[in-house]
Design a protein around this nucleic acid. Sequence first.
RNA 1: GGUGGGGUGGCCGAGUGGCUAAUGGCAGCAGACUGUAAAUCUGCCGGGCUCACGCUCUACGUAGGUUCGAAUCCUACCCCCACCA
Length: 397
Amino acid sequence: MFDFTLEATDGVARAGTLVLPHGTVETPAFMPVGTNGAVRGLSPDEVRDAGARIILGNTYHLHLRPGEEVVRALGGLARFGRWNGPTLTDSGGFQVFSLAELREITEDGVTFRSPIDGSLRTITPERSMEIQWALGADIAMAFDHVVPGQAGWELAREGMERTLRWLDRCKARHAELVATGHGRSDAQDVGVGASACLSAVPLSQTLWPIIQGGAHDDLRLRSLEGILEREPWTGIAIGGLSVGEPKPVMHRVLELLGPRLPVDRPRYLMGVGFPEDLLEAIGRGVDLFDCVAATRNGRHGSAWTADGKVNIRRADLRLSDAPLDAECDCLTCRTYPRAYLRHLFVAEEMLGLRLLSLHNVRFLVRLGEQARQHILRGTFHDWSREWLRRYHGKERA
RNA sequence: GGUGGGGUGGCCGAGUGGCUAAUGGCAGCAGACUGUAAAUCUGCCGGGCUCACGCUCUACGUAGGUUCGAAUCCUACCCCCACCA
């Protein structure tokens, strides 16, 4: 039910195949973020057509709404929204960071004020595991303590050490859940009319730990060490990057960790990133990514192209009959001219938000596919260098 | 014809003696966004010079006037709206 095969390396860059209960993912791969069980603005079919093979869900958001029991009762995250493919749930740890003004951290866990109705909700490592188990993703993430990128050594140490202590609790609770099978989200539990015809996928879930330590090399190494002391893991995530630290810091941390991570397990860089970040990270040995930028920036009118970023509302696109990105094979680029996309944004038509989100998702997925092909051929680094040069060269396409 | 109300920057609309190149909103222009409290947020937005601070010119229907000083007060005129004939 879980297998990772490293197929090729090109320098530090890697190409592999990840087999999960709900399907197979070829790496390097970008995973679109579907916080609420939906990649914002896109249907599962559209996400699939964009080439994505695995999507994220969020423990905290799905716990608040609709509640993990609803998702479980409807057959788990993959089946609930008829994505029917691999999923990964984030643990809620990132909300410790992003909802900083609305939460209180104790050793036991984190109490959040719900952004939905203001009610107080407590998530502990154990609760996060229970919720993720009920959601039924293929991969569950450890409940971690993310600190801002500019956090000093002491704060970063505190977050990193707490993350390790919480990891023990996550691991113990997750093992119990897997062992008992309690609350597993098989479709057999459901049998709800017509929807029951979808084949049930027996659920088995794997738990991945998260390296923390902020921008501090010694803390990063201690975090990794602590995680490796708690083997076995089927994959390892790097968290706490792209949270406000300068880019060179991210590169340095990746270079520090890359050679020390087990080669036979996938490495997942959480929350990253922009196209340039993907290539930089792949070149430093990362296999998996997720990022909200594809859909958020898409909704905000910003699209990636081979020649850099394009703000689709730009006045000079008013009469442009050219596709968004002439080299892109997505529905948006195959079909619509820039002038029409610009019009949709200016007129605040929601189709525009969807079309740009779709393009950006496809852009990152395709970037992963291209990187993979070049790694298999041993041409990744030259290709990547040239790609980045062009991307940064002309900001205006 | 009479009475009352009103004419403000691309539009709508505040202001009713100095703090006003003039609140807001819209439109326009530019930008940001990295494990989603975001279809969000930020900046610019009369002209000229300046990277900027700033300087300067022209501006609150038109023409005069009062005043050290007027979009704000006075006079005349033009136009718009409402009601009454």
